[in-house]
Write a protein that binds this DNA or RNA. Sequence first.
DNA 1: CACAAAGGTTAGCTGATGCTAACTTAAAAG
DNA 2: CTTTTAAGTTAGCATCAGCTAACCTTTGTG
Lengths: 159, 159
Amino acid sequence: MLPYVNLPVTYMGQGAIPTAENFRYYNERQGNAMKPMKIQESAENYLEAILMLKQEKGMVRSVDISRHMNFTKPSVSRAVGLLRDNNYIIIDTDGWIELTDAGREIAEKIYERHQLVTKWLIALGVPDDIAAEDACRIEHDLSSITFEKLKEHILRPNK
Amino acid sequence: MLPYVNLPVTYMGQGAIPTAENFRYYNERQGNAMKPMKIQESAENYLEAILMLKQEKGMVRSVDISRHMNFTKPSVSRAVGLLRDNNYIIIDTDGWIELTDAGREIAEKIYERHQLVTKWLIALGVPDDIAAEDACRIEHDLSSITFEKLKEHILRPNK
DNA sequence: CACAAAGGTTAGCTGATGCTAACTTAAAAG
DNA sequence: CTTTTAAGTTAGCATCAGCTAACCTTTGTG
C-alpha cells in the first residue's frame, strides 16, 4: 500500500494518481516528499477571503464569500462544505463560518504573503490596483524560504 | 450573440462559461476586458519547455518534452496536438517540433520571466534550486507592468 | 526475416473547480 | 396570512489537464 492512499481525498487530490512507477516524479512535482498532499490554491483563496471578511465585518456567511470572490452561491456552497469536511472551518447552524486553527493558519499565511507581495510590488513602482491583482496570484507561489527572504528584504529599512 | 462564443475552444476555454449576467465578473477574473481568452498556464509551460529543449539540443520531439517535464507520452501527445491546432507549433511528418512566431512569442515571454525571476530570487538570497522552482510558478503570474518594473529594478546596477 | 525497442496515438478515467437550473427554508414585507 | 426575497443546497454540466491501457509505426539488431 502506497503512503498516499489514506489521505483525505476531496480537497487533497491532485488529479489522476499515477502508478508506483511514476509516483516519485508525481509527488516531487507537487513539492512533496512523501508528505500529505498540499491544499489546493482555490482552498487557500477561500480561507483567505474568510479571514479578510472576518476582519472587515466580524461575521462571515457563505453568501458574503460569493460576493467577495464573485463566485456563484453553489460554487461557494460546495467549497465551504469541503473546507468544513477537512476541518478548516466550522459552520454553525445559522450558517456563520469560523476558521479552525488549521484554517486560520493557512489563511494567515496566504494573507501575510498577499500583503507582503503587494507592498513589494508597490515599492517597485507597480500601480496599486495591478499590484493587488498580481499579488493575488503570486501569494500562492512562494516557498517559505522565498517568503522569508522577501520579508527580510522589504523590512530592511534602507538599501 | 456574446463576443466570446466564437473563440477557439480547446486551449482557450476557461471552464464553464457563465450567463450574460455573470459574464462581466467572469471575464474580469480572467484579466480580460472582452478580449480573447488568455492561453492556459499549461500551454505556456509546454511552449517554454520546447524553447529550452530547442536551445539545448537543437531539435525537439514529443518524447523529449515528456522526459523534460516528467509527463507521460499521451499527456504530451494531446498537449502538442492542441498547440499545433492553435498554431503555436508546427510538427513535421517525422515528429520534429518547431515554434511558430505566435508560439515563440509566448515561449520567450515566459522564458524571459523565468530567467528574471530566478535571478531576482537568487539576489534575495534564495538557494538556486528553490529559486528555480518558485520561478516556474511565479513566471506565469506577472502582469507586463510588474515584469517591466522588476526588470528595471534588477538591471539597475546599484541601489 | 523476426522480434524488440522507441516514438506516437487513441480511448477512456479521474479530480478540481467553475457554472446553471431548480429546489427548500426562513425571514421580511405587504 | 400571503407573497417576495435572501440564503443555502442538490443535481448535473463543462473544461483543463494529469493518468493508464492498449495499440500502431518505424527502426535497429541478431
